Amino acid sequence: MAYAIRLVLLTVLLVASFAVPAQRVEGERARAVGLYSAEVTVNGQGPGERNGAFARGLLQVLQRITGDRAVNGKPGVGDELRRAREYVDKYDYRQDEGVSASGAPSFKTTLVIQYDADKVGEIISTLGLQQWPTPRPKPVLWLAINDGRGPRLVGLAQNDAARAVLDRAKARGYALGLPAGNAAEQALVGAIWRGDTAAIARASAKYSPPMQLIGKLYRNPKGGWTADWIFQDAGKVLARSSSSDADARRAMAAGADVAADALIRRYAKPAKPLAPPGEFTIAFTGVDSTDDFIRLAAYLERLAVVKRATPVSASPDALVYELELSSGLPGFTRSVVKDGVLEPAGEEGTTTFRLR
């Protein structure tokens, strides 16, 4: 009887340790909501395809929270992406129907993933990544489009015309607003076209916050489309850029990146580390051969939380290192436990680790 109870408890614990499909009411469609969720297109619902999608979704979340589009190149992030399923809270699938270029029906499967915010926060704190604080501002998009019939302002009533840039902003973790588009605002098309930032700032004073993404999209004489962008915050121009593409939607979407990158440069800050950085004397046991020493040294060299590793002494019982740790002993312990190369040789807070 006791064995049966232990078996049931073990089964419950194992089930609880893995992400489970989300529960929905009938008729409700799964969709990503919030900074810690992602949508990834998949080719099937098998575990291999799903685990790959978990990694791609986690990358989306990390890019959104840090604001860094190249965050996957930061030390230690690749290891975390390979463990992405450990950070999944729940997931669900959505079937989307569309029409192909030939006019035939097409179907797409999307995996909608919700990640555990606390666990993702640990990744950021442990690795010392930057963080784009929330709540985030909602700049006003003053966009004029000239498709050959003269420039026109995109207001709230024409929001579908700006869908590409609005959706791209959401993917970057913030939102853009649109002006109402009344007659007085429509008359500002000329100011947009000549880049009169002061005039746009005055017209935008009734909106909050005092940030404007000013863009003009037009046909390029050489072919395709070009968009010129200006982003300003409280009257100060923070960025100017142009984007060109054969597809007007892609040229337009680039404007959201101009604003996001400017906001991140100004407002992102390093995340609070899991623990204060410092130098720690760490003893390693189980180093019984030259191969063991080489394996340990190579592991410490690639570990993102270790900024410097200096051997101090060696004895039959242990090899002692002086380690400079970016997120203290808790960050080091968390990293090595996840990797499975080392294991703590004592209670929480121990400075002795066993090479496995």
Rank of each mutant, 00 (worst) to 15 (best):
A117M: 10
R194E: 14
S335C: 00
S326D: 05
V154G: 00
G195I: 06
A256H: 04
G340D: 02
A164W: 02
R56W: 04
A175V: 11
E301L: 10
A191P: 03
I230Q: 13
A169F: 09
W132S: 07
G46R: 05
L62Y: 05
V71T: 01
T333W: 03
Q95A: 14
A275G: 01
R94I: 06
Q60E: 13
V312R: 12
P221L: 10
L323I: 09
T11R: 14
R219P: 05
R163L: 06
V15L: 13
V237D: 02
I5N: 13
R94D: 12
A283R: 08
A205K: 12
S244K: 11
L325F: 06
A84G: 08
A144N: 05
I192S: 06
P133A: 00
A304I: 00
P210M: 00
A199L: 02
R250Q: 15
S315G: 13
D233F: 14
T109N: 10
E97C: 07
A184V: 13
D118L: 13
A199M: 00
S100D: 15
R334F: 13
W229V: 01
L35F: 10
L62M: 05
I113V: 13
G128R: 10
P75S: 05
F107D: 11
G190V: 03
G44C: 04
L263D: 00
D288Y: 09
A38Q: 06
L355T: 05
K307E: 14
A318F: 03
L342Q: 09
R94L: 10
D245V: 03
P135S: 04
F280R: 11
R308D: 14
A345Y: 08
K216V: 07
T310L: 12
L143I: 06
A4K: 15
V61R: 04
N159Q: 12
S100V: 06
L325S: 09
R354A: 09
S102F: 11
A297G: 01
G190H: 07
R50P: 03
A199V: 02
L156Q: 08
S326M: 07
K269E: 15
A314R: 11
R308S: 10
D339E: 14
G103E: 07
I214L: 10
D247A: 14
P135Q: 00
R194A: 04
P273G: 05
A271V: 08
